[in-house]
Design a protein around this nucleic acid. Structure first.
Lengths: 363, 363
DNA sequence: GTGAAAGCGCTAACAT
DNA sequence: ATGTTAGCGCTTTCAC
């Protein structure tokens, strides 16, 4: 059960031996210099076929594997990327992480993952730790992209970084992949207004989060174009609790003021919204039209299926990785915008008592 | 934009300087030996207060940060754990990863994440890569826990490992955290039989996966105790496609043979099952009782809410990390079993035409 | 308690 | 084309 060390009789025992084989041992056994082994193993070109074969045979015999740690120290690059994520249990972020990891691995990079649990201080701490581990680059889905500490922390890291749907304004020279939340959000809002809704509500995430900010401004922009409609934004956590309590309080208002259409600002918020609606026996879409953000496996199977402002998180992950790789290969820090779309369904219908409507509804 | 190197005039420029500060520089600046700085930074005890203060002041002035890479090479441990996961986009695995990462980080470990995309060859490849990166331990949620290549690969790694709800039979000395799928599965099956169902179906994952195997054997065990009931198991991928095509083919049978109750073996399979049911206009639970495995955010909000065989994935992640840490601290490889439970809901009801029933149904 | 020195496993000059 | 050598930044004997 102990490692090697006691066993000395006879020759090396080949593959199944537990102890790690060093490059020096390979060199000794092959009767060549350490550096020659290095050249063969690292795939250098100035190596004779004879040398190559001779070394590779011993490598196979001894089951030698390069020590990436030592290589990293010497080369000054770790072939490792750090991904700071709010919470990997968020299916959206998990999908992004999958896309990113897949692409990075193709390029030979490994991915360190750290969850910040919606705590900006942890975001900073993770960046610091990753820096000490000498990661070659960072993928950042930050809790608060306006945190000044973070900008300093990031600058110190002095490695390429890509912001994942976060505002790059405070981080000069840092790349970003951004969703065009505006287009999907505007289309959704306009669709609701066209159905005759004049009382809209967006139960939103926190203003620290770019997606929440963008969705709020999209709503407001559309409302400015439509004086016949009014809307309100309720900011809060990306949580079911925020969704539930906010929806409940909206329903508890005077009948006149109760919104006839609601947009849930995330999948967790949606869960809370639906709980509140069920408890109040509110029927979708008869009593209330509902739109949600981001696809969820079961939402298509609801009765009615839920209208969704959707995006492609896997693609976001891939593109994030791509932008990081470009920088790691010496390229500039580019930024990219990805589209969002609106998929209307029967969860949106004309309001029951259209207050002050202009156009007559069809069918 | 270039790194440091040209700047030589005057003193070091303190914190905001981009270039990395080495321990040697700290030692020079403080006028002490390199080894003394190391002792202070590593928190050794045999250090005088004077020395400690003197060094820490320079550390702060220069913004020195230890290089974990170099430390790892010297100490022979990287404070890094590798997590091989089928697909982090699976919410169950994401929750597990979150629990594990949180616990590992508390203990000072970072987590490398690699997705195997249900490809056993990638599982092996990841283990090999993690080994070359000299991770201190492994967390493994394998595609196929009966793969012989993998056992060899794992043995070569020669580091502590914990199997995450995978069978440890082939991996001597490897710890495991296992769900007791049997108890939840048996309770669910028995509940269905008590409702009067005699035609059960389990649309299951692949036999390569322990959870799928355990659920199948739980079903069969219960059926053996209940000669009045029959059931069938349809193995396949953990995919919506498998769920949909299998459910559709079950519905297409002679009326007599169509199951009156179905258990979906995963959240993806559930999606497919529900699609098939919707297309066939099958009403739950009037035409068919439905049970699913693993909680999903929206399943409670279905009408009716879906009966669920559930487990605590976050806890699984924490316990996995805990078992790994025990080994990393020199302890033995323990294994732990966690419970599963069955939450019945109105998605389960007596069958419409109870073929050959004994007991009369209530209410 | 502190300093000097060896070396973790590897790569990349630099020689030849 | 191959060998020799000097480190990457750190920890840890070993002397004193």
């Amino acid at each position: 059960m102990r490692g090697g060390g006691a066993v000395r009789s006879g020759e090396a025992l080949a593959v199944s031996q537990a102890s790690r084989v060093s490059m020096q041992e390979v060199a000794d056994r092959a009767g060549v210099a350490l550096s020659s082994v290095s050249r063969v193993v690292s795939g250098h070109r100035d190596v004779s076929p004879v040398m190559r074969e001779r070394v590779l045979r011993v490598v196979a015999d001894l089951g030698y594997e390069p020590d990436i740690l030592a290589r990293s120290l010497r080369r000054g690059q770790t072939m490792t990327v750090g991904f700071v994520v709010g919470n990997i249990a968020n299916p959206l972020l998990a999908e992004i992480a999958l896309g990113a990891e897949t692409r990075l691995r193709e390029a030979g990079y490994a991915m360190l993952l750290a969850n910040s649990m919606d705590d900006p201080a942890l975001d900073s701490a993770h960046i610091r730790l990753f820096r000490q581990r000498r990661v070659d680059g960072l993928l950042l889905s930050l809790t608060d992209d306006r945190d000044p500490d973070l900008a300093a922390e990031l600058a110190r890291a002095n490695v390429p970084a890509v912001l994942v749907d976060r505002d790059a304004a405070r981080y000069p020279g840092v790349a970003a992949v951004l969703y065009d939340h505006a287009s999907g959000g505007e289309r959704a809002t306009e669709a609701l207004i066209e159905l005759g809704h004049t009382h809209l509500a967006l139960i939103n995430g926190p203003p620290a989060s770019r997606p929440a900010r963008e969705r709020a401004s999209a709503l407001r922009r559309v409302l400015r174009r439509h004086p016949e409609a009014a809307g309100l934004v309720r900011s809060g956590a990306f949580s079911a609790q925020h969704g539930e309590s906010t929806m409940a309080s909206l329903l508890a208002q005077d009948n006149e003021a109760v919104p006839t259409a609601v947009i849930a600002g995330s999948n967790q918020i949606l869960v809370g919204v639906l709980r509140a609606l069920r408890r109040a026996n509110v029927i979708i879409p008869k009593d209330l039209s509902v739109v949600t953000c981001d696809d969820q496996p079961l939402s298509e199977l609801f009765d009615p299926p839920l209208a969704t402002i959707s995006r492609q998180p896997h693609e976001l992950g891939e593109v994030s990785a791509e932008l990081l790789l470009e920088q790691l290969n010496g390229g500039p820090a580019r930024s990219v915008v990805l589209p969002t779309s609106f998929r209307p369904t029967e969860s949106c219908a004309p309001p029951r008592q259209p207050a002050r409507r202009r156009r007559g509804g069809g069918g």
